[in-house]
Every structure is written in structure tokens, then in C-alpha cells.
Design a binder for these strands. Structure first.
Length: 512
RNA sequence: GCGGAAGUAGCUCAAUUGGUAGAGCUCCAGCCUUCCAAGCUGGAGGUUGCGGGUUCGAGACCCGUCUUCCGCUCCA
């Protein structure tokens, strides 16, 4: 395999396709941009990663419970969360400087310039005359009146365009005003586009005026709106967490880099509710806990780093990313945010319902603070796959091996008869039938055994169990390790225990 | 969205100036039986991303479109 990161990434993509991990969505119709499907092996790997996260977060913490909220939510949810207002901006690009601007800001700045001119006229006049009446001057001075008329005309036209959602008209205003790009100085503009983060659709009968409904752009709100339900029915005491995995949807303008940025993606997140004032210590706690979880996958400690946010989002008082070194560089894998009480307070305000916690120690109620951990499952999948895929140089040849952590490999073991006769397939079949109650196992009798080993290497199966003639006599088999290619003999009766120890998720959880 | 590169079998890639679409691996059915791919026989698989155009003739040239990768941008 070439050392060039670009080639490594290409290999990951073609390997994903070739072995059934990832397919492009609707490929027979030329695909759908930035949407991908998980194939037969990808679905297993993804499920195993999700399970490991869920067990580590929910099963291993008595004070964390999991929910599964619906993708559709009441539209007001997104007003409260700020998603409706935050992403309603008309955008325009300058083709020469390649810079993107908010079209409304460009127009407002132009208007501001005209207002400056008026102010200068007023200042000049104020110096000239005593007993200066600014209002009178503005309403009588010809030049000022001219500017003011221009401003009013622009504002009226802009307002109409926005109300009619007429983006072509917005662009035409920019063209007509001869607004230039501050950087390139050119008037070479693209069309104005509405940058709308959320996908919308309509639903039969929501309530009042609106029947527009959004596909959730993040899963977090499903937890916040259920905060009180869970706290009451689960008798949860602070601090406690609510975890959830599920799909979220964002209509990215540019979505690229394979499954790194998709329009439909899956999040695994946990909102941890704490007493106000303790949030920074929990923020630090979860930073370390989550990093440790990632490190347990053994992809290489040097591939992780924290990236602290200097510029914080409106809801946060501290935020950082756990970044991972993908083939295309260090990129965000998980976000850890101290969200304060912003979300719950917003929902209190918009819903009119109290979302408070009664602290029996303090004998008072308050809105809890929230520390969020949020991983992109698809990104984690890509991190695992791209660092597991190795082209290994052997003595006389090379082999492709997917060095997945055993506990999350799609198949835990493959069972082969050494040859396809003499009763070996029958015994192998029997072993498989027995193991498959506890483990996802594969069976293969086609081609030479060496070839079968390599096939399993390529899909990351940690162990291959081979039945040979000796097996018929003493009920032992050979078990071959994927990474070392070493083999050892063991009784068939020991297989279950051996696999449980070596591929079980328990082994991984115990490292945390 | 702008710019660059690309799209031919499941994968990686050929195809001379525009002249019969091919190879390797994979896959399938057998043979062989030997614990680490590339043994033997046979076979399947393509409207060359899609749609137009130029031409006697287009995988190649032109236009449009879709998709992917790279840079910029975006990513509360």
C-alpha cells in the first residue's frame, strides 16, 4: 500500500465497497450526493461499535439511562433550540475572491454607508449654523433627502424580496447597487442561495398554523424535551445522564470525504445533568472518560488529540473536540460541550412548562446544567476502518488485513474444514452450529485453506478455526490468530470459552 | 458554491490519430487435497456514469448533466 494519505483513503473507500462495508446510496441511479448505505459487513461493524458505546455509557453507569426519541419533533422544538433562526441566511459568493457573504449583510452595509453620508452632511451643517435643527435639516436638505430616498427604496425593495423569498431579486439588488466584494473589488457574484440546515417535510395535523416539520438536525433535543419524563419516571437524582443513539439530518452545502460528512448520519450522545456550578468538573471528567473509551479501541494513542474551542457557541461555556487523525488529517470525532442551562431554559420558555429539579439537600428547585458528549458514529466507523486496514509485507507476498478490535469485528470466527471431504465439513458444520448461538461466525470450504485465511483477514475476522483429520480422532482443532498468523491446537470443547474471552465485549469493557 | 482531477466488469487498470471493448484479481461450477493468496478445466460478468451532438464510424472529440476525490469555502 502506498504511503500517500490520499492513496490510503482511496484504498479504504474501495475496500469498503469491495467487501460490502459501505455502498453509495442508490448507486444504480448514479448515487445520491453525500448519502451512503452500510452493507452486510458494515452494518455488523457499525452495530458492534454502537453496542460497545451503549454498554460503556448506559450499562456501566448506574446513573445513566438510554432513550430512543423520534426523529420528528414538534416544530417549536427547533425555535427553542435556535435552529430555525440560526440558519435562515441568504448567502452569496464572490467568484473572484471565493469569499462567501450573507447577502442581507452586504445590502445592510451598503445602506449603512448611505446613512454615514447623511450623518456627515448633518455634521457639516451643524458646524455652519447656530441653533441647528437636525430634524429640520434632514427633511429639507436636498442631498440628504436624496440619500434618504435611496435608503428607503432599497429597504422597501429588500423587505419585499425577503418576504417573497425571492432570492433572484436579492441578487438583483446587489447587482443594481453595484456592491463590490471588499476583498477582490469585483462584482462577479454567484446567485443568492438560502442556506437551510434543516430538511423539512409536512405532516398531516400538527397543531395551530404550521404543518411544516423538520428532520432533526441533532438528537440532543429529543433528550432535553424528555428530561423531566425520564427524571420523574426513572427517579433519577442529579447528577445523571440520558444517552441516545440515532439518525440526524443536515442539509450541508458541501458534504464530502466519504462518510465523514453525510447529509444523513448517526449520533451517539449523552447529556449529563448536573448541579449548577459543578459543570466544569464534570466537563473535565467526561473529557477524560471519553478519551479513555476511544483509546480502548487501540487504534493508536498518537491519533487522538483535544481541540479546545476558543470561540464558543451561544449555548456553551466550555467546549472541546476529540480529534482523530483520519487519512485526510486531524478532524473532529467527538464533541464535549458544557451547555449550561441554555437548552432547558429555552424549552421552559417556549413550552411554558417548568423543567426544574428539586434538590432535597438544598431544599430548592433549579434548572440543571448540562454536559454533553456527542460522537459521530459514522466518523468513528471511518476512524476504525481506516486505521485497521493494513497492507502487510510477508516473506514472499503481501496480505491485506483488517486489524479490527476483536470485539467489534463483524465475524468473530470463521470455521473451515481443511479439505472438503473425509467427513471434515460435517464436523466443521457441527462446530459452527454450536458456536452461532453466542457468536457471529462464518463458514467456508471453498478454495485452499490459505486463501480462506486471507479472505477472513481482509474482513477482519480475528480467529479462524480449522478442522483437520486429527480433529476426527481427538476432537481438537487449530485456531489461527489473524494478526500474528500463529496457530495453536485446542479442544473443540474449549472454543466457546476461548472466544468469549478473546472477542467478547466484556474484555473491552473491563479495560475502561 | 468556485477552481482542479476523474468516472471503462465486483476491485485495480488497459485500449496507438476516432476504427472489432481487453487484462489481472474477484466471483460461479467442477477437478486436485497439501495449514497460509496467485495449481488445472470450464463459465459468468459491460448500452464505456447518464443524455444529446459531430462523424461512414465515438470509450476517446464537443455540449449538458450526475457522482467522486483534492484545494478554497462551509460545517450554530
Amino acid at each position: 500500500m502506498s504511503q500517500k494519505p490520499e492513496d490510503i483513503f482511496k484504498n479504504v473507500i474501495s475496500h469498503s465497497k469491495e467487501y460490502g462495508f459501505i455502498f453509495q446510496s442508490s448507486e444504480i441511479y448514479d448515487g445520491l450526493s453525500a448519502v451512503y448505505d452500510y452493507g452486510q459487513l458494515g452494518a455488523e461493524l457499525k452495530k458492534n461499535i454502537r453496542d460497545y458505546w451503549w454498554k460503556a455509557m448506559v450499562q456501566m453507569h448506574e446513573n445513566i439511562v438510554g432513550i430512543d426519541a423520534a426523529i420528528f419533533m414538534h416544530p417549536t422544538t427547533w425555535k427553542a433550540s435556535g435552529h430555525v433562526d440560526a440558519f435562515n441566511d441568504p448567502l452569496i459568493d464572490n467568484k473572484d475572491s471565493k469569499k462567501r457573504y450573507r447577502a442581507d449583510v452586504l445590502i445592510e452595509e451598503h445602506v449603512a454607508k448611505l446613512e454615514d453620508k447623511i450623518n456627515k452632511e448633518v455634521e457639516k451643517a451643524a458646524k455652519k449654523f447656530e441653533n441647528f435643527d437636525a430634524a429640520l435639516f434632514k427633511s429639507t436638505n436636498g442631498r440628504v433627502k436624496e440619500y434618504q430616498e435611496k435608503i428607503d427604496a432599497i429597504n422597501a425593495r429588500f423587505k419585499t424580496a425577503l418576504n417573497e423569498n425571492n432570492l433572484q431579486e436579492v441578487k438583483q439588488i446587489i447587482v443594481d447597487l453595484e456592491i463590490v466584494c471588499p476583498i477582490s473589488g469585483s462584482r462577479n457574484w454567484t446567485d443568492v442561495r438560502q442556506f437551510n440546515l434543516m430538511f423539512s417535510t409536512s405532516i398531516g395535523s400538527v397543531s395551530d398554523e404550521s404543518n411544516t416539520i423538520y428532520l432533526r438536525p441533532e438528537t440532543a433535543q429529543g433528550i432535553f424535551v424528555n428530561y423531566l419524563n425520564v427524571q420523574k419516571t426513572g427517579r433519577m437524582k442529579l447528577p445523571f445522564g440520558i444517552a441516545q443513539t440515532g439518525k440526524a439530518f443536515r442539509n450541508e452545502i458541501v458534504a464530502r470525504q466519504f462518510i465523514f460528512r453525510m447529509r444523513e448520519f448517526e449520533q451517539m450522545e449523552m447529556q449529563f445533568f448536573v448541579k449548577p456550578g459543578t459543570e466544569m468538573q464534570w466537563y473535565e471528567h467526561w473529557k477524560q472518560t471519553r478519551l479513555k473509551w476511544h483509546l480502548s479501541l487501540n487504534l493508536g494513542a498518537q491519533k487522538y488529540r483535544f481541540h479546545d474551542h476558543l470561540k464558543l457557541a451561544h449555548y456553551a461555556n466550555a467546549a472541546c473536540d476529540i480529534e482523530f487523525e483520519f487519512p485526510f488529517g486531524f478532524k473532529e470525532l467527538e464533541g464535549i460541550h458544557s451547555r449550561t442551562d441554555f437548552d432547558l431554559k429555552q424549552h421552559e420558555q417556549f413550552s411554558g412548562k417548568k423543567l426544574q429539579y428539586f434538590d432535597s439537600e438544598l431544599n430548592q428547585s433549579y434548572v440543571p446544567y448540562v454536559v454533553e458528549t456527542s460522537v459521530g458514529l459514522d466518523r468513528l466507523f471511518l476512524a476504525v476502518l481506516s486505521s485497521a486496514l493494513k497492507e502487510e509485507q510477508l516473506e514472499n507476498d503481501t496480505r491485506t488485513v483488517l486489524q479490527l478490535p476483536a470485539a467489534i469485528a463483524p465475524y468473530k470466527a470463521a470455521i473451515f474444514p481443511l479439505i472438503k471431504k473425509d467427513g471434515l465439513p460435517e464436523l466443521a458444520e457441527k462446530i459452527m452450529q454450536n458456536l452461532k448461538f453466542d457468536f457471529n461466525v462464518a463458514y467456508d470450504e471453498k478454495d485452499t485453506v490459505g486463501k480462506r485465511y486471507r479472505r477472513q483477514d481482509a474482513i477482519g475476522t480475528p480467529f479462524c478455526i480449522t478442522v483437520d483429520h486429527q480433529s476426527l480422532e481427538d476432537q481438537t482443532v487449530t485456531i489461527r490468530y489473524r494478526d500474528s498468523m500463529q496457530q495453536e491446537r485446542m479442544p473443540i470443547a474449549n472454543l466457546s470459552v476461548f472466544l468469549a474471552e478473546n472477542v467478547g465485549i466484556k474484555t473491552l469493557l473491563q479495560t475502561l
